[in-house]
Design a protein around this nucleic acid. Structure first.
Lengths: 230, 230
DNA sequence: GGCCGGCATCAAGATTTCGTCAAGACGCCA
DNA sequence: TGGCGTCTTGACGAAATCTTGATGCCGGCC
């Protein structure tokens, strides 16, 4: 969306519908590109990456579904599919192939515009950075499964990560040995408190400034552990 | 279009028409190459890749259509076809074979020049920006499914490409074995982690400077793989 | 002071997971 | 049908991770 208003790519072979869309969308302030065939759509999209695609599934040359999946290989912008009312199955395969929404023809302008706004808004959210949790000088990027200490990445083994994630999930609360063991190792090993000691130690070695006097992973003697809330 | 003005290749056997074209085009500032036969056209085009081709379909040796498709095998520059007024069918097959436009003889200079400008402008756009992603010394042209390392193209098999593309799509994130297998091989093979090892190895061999200490495709032991974000 | 239980740390196997090579199977095109 | 590129499968050494045992520390209690 470099130049302010979103760039829409219309892929539609029927001249009248295209003209109609052009009128409705330009009056809304959208910038437009048009393609009358699948081939052209792929070419134009590659040259001018759109912020949103309106894709008619009934195209003359390539199958609309094909265009859809070729686009989805690299395009993250939302794709709204235009289908005939009786093509139920088509909608479903289209959504499976990565379409974000569909509108059945004939459609009301208002509905189309509303769905476009929703899709664009949604896309913007996705583009935002993945949410991170900060505690002290630690930073957790949970979607990416990454942990940082003062901006340098920390490598954690699967069990270390799982343990830390469980503590983080209930941070501030005291977590009993049994609870942690169940969550991380499973009900089988809920007695093996020794596991906990070993892994807490290695987590402290990696996360704490002074593992002997921990700031994040606190021991609750006789009960369990607690991850510092603030 | 290295030297400023576009290089035009004229393929035309009739001397008078060639002379006429030469006059019109040089006065417009175009650089020219000429060929009087199909054979010559292919030779010249190979030696001096033109920015635009004017191709007369009525040639003495090879069929004009043949020249056209031979050129199209590798040449992306626009090709404008010159046809006689009564050769309707010829135009159509020419367009199918990859011609960008046609002009019927006899033609007005103004019209020819206009069509040439359009074609050149259009070609420029296409050549301009396929959205490419750069990571380190790698470059990805996603729409075209091409991968380059330091500007030399890397050949990837279909599955190699698909795997790489999915990692790139979620670059920075840790992708579990299951996820990658599902995306690339489908839900059936979501257990076959061995596939991943083999293909990651071959991708590293092709992309990394030192496959043993990868910079792009990183292993997250026990979890999956991650494509380096920055 | 000596003993004991809970906790922390270290390190040596044991086990699982990875990387690599190569042979076989498969599909496709000439 | 044979060759070619590609994918699948198997085998094995290497690496990372997990388990397990040994040892030491500390505070409370007899």
């Amino acid at each position: 969306m470099q130049q302010g208003s979103p760039l829409i790519l219309i892929v539609e072979d029927e001249q009248p519908i295209r003209r109609f869309l052009r009128a409705s969308l330009t009056s809304e302030g959208y910038r437009l590109n048009e393609a009358a065939s699948g081939e052209e759509a792929l070419r134009v999209a590659a040259s001018y990456p759109p912020d949103l695609v309106l894709l008619d599934l009934g195209l003359p040359d390539i199958d609309g579904q094909e265009v859809l999946s070729r686009l989805r290989e690299w395009l993250t912008a939302p794709i709204i599919v235009l289908t005939a009312r009786d093509q139920e199955q088509q909608k479903i395969t289209a959504l499976d192939a990565g379409a974000d929404d569909y509108v059945t023809k004939p459609f009301a302008t208002g509905e189309l515009l509303a769905r476009m706004r929703t899709a664009l808004r949604h896309a913007q959210h996705l583009a935002a950075e993945s949410p991170t949790v900060r505690v002290g000088d630690l930073r957790f990027d949970l979607p990416a499964r990454l942990v940082f200490k003062r901006d340098t990445q920390i490598h954690l083994t699967p069990l270390e990560y799982k343990l830390l994630a469980t503590m983080l999930k209930h941070s501030g609360k005291v977590l009993t040995h049994r609870f942690l063991l169940r969550e991380v190792w499973g009900p089988e090993d809920s007695q093996e408190t020794h596991y906990l000691r070993v892994f807490v130690a290695s987590l402290r070695r990696k996360l704490e400034d002074d593992p002997a006097r921990p700031r994040y992973i606190l021991t609750e003697p006789g009960v369990g552990y607690r991850f510092a809330a603030e």
